[in-house]
Amino acid sequence: MRRRLEPYLWLLFSGGGVVAALTLPVLVLLFGVLMPLGVVAWPSAAHLRALVDAPLVRGAVVVALTLCLFHAAHRIRFTSEELLGLRRWDALVAVLCYGAAVAGGVTAITLLF
């Protein structure tokens, strides 16, 4: 069972890793640091809404964020097991981690659609 799942989980992890690497630094730089500090101005609410207006864009955002969450879930699963010696509880840890990622994806869908 697990053996058939691992490759897919790894693909989600890898895809998420790429998306996270390419998109997250600039987004957190803008929305998390420069705008709150006033270095650049917040865009208007209308502009932001317009950005995610197209259904295609919304879909892409949902996919991108979900992939990032799967990336994080995969790493958190393995790192927690390695740091805390939880290898025995892998099944449980995996359900928690990937479950959280799925939940995040569902949240994104409800927010955007």
Binding site: L69, I76, G104, A108
Partner: peptide
């Protein structure tokens, strides 16, 4: 870093929620 990746996604979700 994955923990903060997850946080960043959460943060962006909060932003999207606020926009919505």
């Amino acid at each position: 870093t994955s923990v903060l990746v997850a946080w960043t996604v959460a943060y962006l979700l909060l932003l999207l929620g606020a926009v919505a």
